[in-house]
Design a protein around this nucleic acid. Structure first.
Lengths: 340, 340
DNA sequence: TTGAAAGCGGTACCAT
DNA sequence: ATGGTACCGCTTTCAA
């Protein structure tokens, strides 16, 4: 037995009040051609009187669609994910789809939470390191439309990413022009596909020049505190002259730690980030700009195409361009932007 | 007629395969006491074989609840709203509720979008200047649980806000100790209840000291570009010695404009913001810290109480404390934090 | 312990 | 142009 009505009035009451059948109410309210203007008006009147709002549940059940899609992301800590989600919502709204969000965080039950979510949407975007690949292939195998965002491609699934490798090389090359050579990469490649790509790019650039490729310095999390703590340790042990950070938040943390350690940036130490957060600009941080809104919007649009289009079409891949943004943290020179 | 099955297997197929009735399947899958272990196992086996996932739609329709709630916000531009939404999602997830998001932006049809959203959730949080009050009272009048976030209270509706007035006074007093006296308030009080509260607090503090209360300098939007453009105009016309901005993004824009105009901050001009974004820290911006995560989490929890609790209980109000964060942009001194 | 059946609130087909 | 009705997929009462 239902515990409570979701909205007071049902289509039956409207039908009764208007003196017509529920079929007619349904038609009249959706402005079908097959209804006399008089009837239409009578129905609308009754609906208004009863403050009738069709139940989404009833409607969705009958139509066989949720008119909603979901996006799963690791967390919204920091502005990065938020921007992407924003771009996503905007695009989804444009074609009338609601967006259900799910942050997996450290959750143990992330996989089941995602499956749960899958049951209430017409399609799903999976953003970054959230659940294992097999959860995704399992879902996609059901026929559920899925789009991957900032994540390594999976057979048969659309994928949208930002370019990491090329720009990583550009970044390294730029640092080399400043004469830096004792590099450190701060971030855990295992923590996210993006970080993995960034490290790969950095490593490749270094080895191509015959330089030593340092192991990544791993840290817990991607936020400012993590970066600060890691840098404090690091700077006690080593004397690198350039710290390439996996993202801006970590880099900002390094800036703080460097200041505490009495090191001048960029004089004693160069620091770079990734993402070009607003804070990076004011911190004078050299970084890589990501098209965050675009990433989200593209994913949303592709997902919509999968949902509305015919199922057969082959998987699409797109890598959105990024650009090196040079500021003072990597060495002394005038500000400029290098597109890549 | 339904156009497509949402998930392949239905409870009927599981029932058939297991050789039991759908009632038994339903019970077995939800671990009801009234099922023999053998039957239970048989059903689970069948369900597994068919990769059965119960339809949320069917279930919700029968249960009379969505197991989801919604949050409406103006936009996610900038880190502020994102943080609040994050806190909200985290709290909602904790009691097993999905979160459907809706950004109203400039949308003309915001009201109808909100009503749409209302039809697919058990309750709604309305955050900031998004839709007119009557839309909200209309919804709340239906019996839909509603919580207001950073918004002026409405009769019978729970409200969570951050303290603006007191801290605004503290801010003004602090600026006065630096000897500033030609104040400007940059931001449109009509644009958001928060801004209105901040302006009110500033105005009160000024008039209490017998000082002139300047009209607010209105601008379009709350972002960095808006602040920068407005400041460029402003600094051409006037020579204030302290610009109190409605939020950090605007203040950051002012910083940029001041630099372009060749003005030193805080030497020639003091600038303050509101929100304590990450960027504010690195820009050395004096500001007011908002408990963003807490705002979101509190709203989510209250909404949940409304949804699960008995309807009668009277409306709750809470104003979360904020604190003045003094940095170098308001005048020369060592950094410190003033709780209020 | 299990099953039959009545909803939940719509949509759309088939008649009329 | 309307109405009757068979779904959509599940939960829960009522009987057996």
């Amino acid at each position: 037995m239902a515990m409570k009505a979701l909205s007071k009035a049902t289509i039956y009451q409207v039908a009764q009040l208007a003196g017509v059948s529920i079929a007619t109410v349904s038609r009249a309210l959706r402005d079908s051609e097959l209804v006399t203007p008089q009837t239409r008006e009578r129905v609308h009147q009754a609906a208004r009187e009863l403050r009738f709002t069709p139940s989404r549940l009833g409607r969705s059940l009958a139509e066989g669609r949720h008119a909603a899609n979901g996006i799963v992301f690791p967390d919204l800590v920091g502005p990065y994910y938020a921007e992407v989600v924003l771009g996503y919502e905007a695009a989804a709204a444009a074609f009338g789809s609601s967006v259900v969000i799910l942050a997996t965080r450290g959750r143990e039950d992330a996989a089941s939470a995602v499956r749960d979510l899958a049951a209430r949407v017409d399609g799903l975007t999976v953003f970054g390191q959230t659940v294992p690949d097999d959860v995704i292939t399992g879902l996609a195998g059901t026929g559920l439309p899925v789009v991957l965002l900032s994540r390594d491609p999976l057979p048969g699934v659309d994928t949208v990413r930002a370019r990491n490798d090329h720009t990583a090389q550009a970044l390294v090359e730029h640092l080399l022009t400043h004469g830096h050579h004792r590099f450190v990469f701060l971030g855990d490649p295992a923590g996210s596909p993006d970080v993995a790509g960034r490290y790969r790019g950095v490593a490749r650039a270094l080895s191509q020049r015959g330089l030593d490729v340092p192991d990544p310095v791993r840290l817990e999390g991607f936020d400012l505190e993590a970066g600060e703590a890691a840098a404090r340790d690091l700077l006690r042990r080593e004397r690198p002259d350039a710290v390439i950070c996996a993202n801006d938040e970590v880099a900002l943390g390094v800036l703080l730690a460097a200041e505490q350690a009495g090191l001048k940036v960029p004089g004693d130490l160069a620091v770079t980030g990734w993402d070009d957060l607003m804070a990076a600009r004011f911190a004078g941080l050299t970084t890589v700009r990501q098209p965050m809104r675009d990433l989200g919007a593209t994913a949303a649009r592709w997902l919509n195409q999968r949902i509305t289009g015919q199922p057969g079409r082959k998987a699409k891949r797109r890598i959105l361009p990024t650009q090196l943004v040079v500021r003072r943290s990597c060495g002394p020179h005038s500000p400029e932007v290098h597109p890549t």
